[in-house]
Write a protein that binds this DNA or RNA. Sequence first.
DNA 1: CTCCATTTTGCAAATCATTTGCATTTATAT
DNA 2: ATATAAATGCAAATGATTTGCAAAATGGAG
Lengths: 141, 141
Amino acid sequence: MNKNNIESTLKNQGYKLTGQRRFIIEAFEECPAHYTAQEIYEKVKAQNPNINFSTVYRNLELLCKIGVINKLNISSGISHFEIKHDEHHHHVICLKCGDMQSIDVCPYAELKVSELDKLGFVPIEHKFEIYGYCKKCSKDN
Amino acid sequence: MNKNNIESTLKNQGYKLTGQRRFIIEAFEECPAHYTAQEIYEKVKAQNPNINFSTVYRNLELLCKIGVINKLNISSGISHFEIKHDEHHHHVICLKCGDMQSIDVCPYAELKVSELDKLGFVPIEHKFEIYGYCKKCSKDN
DNA sequence: CTCCATTTTGCAAATCATTTGCATTTATAT
DNA sequence: ATATAAATGCAAATGATTTGCAAAATGGAG
């Protein structure tokens, strides 16, 4: 997913390409990490001081809806957003500083799903998160 | 973890055993599922109509702190609480009705953690959640 | 059993993230 | 260039969770 992909996805689905949306998409491009809405807002505000918080929120939801970013609900209770990667991955999350990093391991692939069948549950997506202390924080203390 | 365990854990750590706490603990005992704070509040209120919401919240946090219940932050954004089981387990969560069920599968056990070592990450706990549609909701629609 | 220090509660009000209503502005198809 | 539907900014609403504080309750000491 790059800027052009995202912009054409937007247009193909009948959404307008506004300046605000461009900046939001760029904010993700710049560094493909995980941001809170607040962080995106600040990044965009640096470029476009008039942008409103609710515009950012609305567009983050929109970008999720059209499937170009993911919303991550981690234990802190604050939603994080990340650009959708081709490769599916999961996260390690620091309990002290809140830093999140991606890992390439996916346990789902190897999972025996017989238990889901038993429940009659139809899986759509899954989440695997490891909480602990990152290099920096485990050293500090 | 049963009522007596929990009550003595409380006392051992210097916390008082109040009527409100008793009712909250009983609410979990009754049926060892996953509740929102709101649900616990309603269950307790049926027994003790004067109890306040913030008392429930404070005590749910306390019970987490002393390690007898777990707080689950799922994608809906509403915290759920469950009594800590001896057996470690994970959840399937319905995207439609929000229903949560436990599954016995744990992918972590079989995980090659070499990737964590590489990051210098010290794992403390982990979460594995499968989102999809429960039996009832996948039938409805 | 009574008294006291300390913890806990109820209440109301504060927070914090997120969402919404609405008038105004903007993007784009024609 | 214009019309129209979609998007934005703003302020105010929401909903979950948290907090300050005075009053009430617990549990240990006497």
